[in-house]
């Protein structure tokens, strides 16, 4: 993730999304590709995508804002998702989430002051038989207790 990189130009954006233009329904793959490259969907992408796909800017913006995944600003260096759904709640997910957020001194969707980690709620990771569950970037963790959480947090320097 290039948190401090200069804002991408229309050219940069086109280079990333152009290979996807021939897909049927290319917008979501394009948005994912941009978020992969920049850690968020840069504002500058909206007019480029609108132009390429023959859509209104408001329409493109509407799509970006509809989905929980797409960010308009970069996240921390790592993203920690804590499952809040029912199976995890049955195994103490609320307590785990509360104590994690309290330790970090932040709320849901916030990033720690040192930029190490952003904490997001997630509704089920398909790890409901080893709840409570969390995901650190792309890495899944099951039966998370305070000790395991502390280990994860120290790994990412939070």
């Amino acid at each position: 993730m290039q948190v401090n990189a200069p804002a991408p130009t229309a050219e940069d954006i086109r280079a990333i999304v152009a290979p996807l233009a021939s897909l049927e329904g290319p917008l979501l793959p394009m948005l994912h590709a941009l978020q992969d490259s920049y850690g968020h969907v840069p504002q500058a992408a909206v007019p480029v995508l609108a132009d390429m796909l023959n859509l209104g800017r408001a329409e493109v913006h509407g799509v970006i804002s509809f989905y929980h995944d797409f960010r308009d600003a970069p996240a921390g260096r790592h993203v920690l998702k804590i499952c809040r759904a029912e199976a995890c709640q049955s195994m103490g997910a609320n307590r785990l989430a509360d104590s994690t957020l309290r330790k970090l001194g932040i709320g849901w969707h916030d990033t720690t002051r040192n930029g190490a980690v952003t904490v997001e709620p997630v509704y089920c990771l398909g790890l409901c038989a080893c709840a409570p569950a969390a995901m650190l970037d792309d890495r899944v963790v099951g039966r998370v207790d305070d000790a395991r959480m502390d280990k994860l947090l120290s790994e990412v320097g939070a």
């Binding site: 049927e24 329904g25 290319p26 917008l27 979501l28 793959p29 948005l31 994912h32 796909l53 509407g62 799509v63 509809f66 989905y67 929980h68 995944d69 797409f70 997630v122 509704y123």
Partner: peptide, 23 residues
């Protein structure tokens, strides 16, 4: 194709809209 974190996109018509690149 990868979804984008919306539960309602499991509903089949919402899913089709999403697959087409819409809300």
């Amino acid at each position: 194709r990868m979804g984008a974190g919306a539960y309602v996109c499991g509903e089949e018509t919402s899913l089709l809209n999403s697959l087409e690149g819409k809300r």
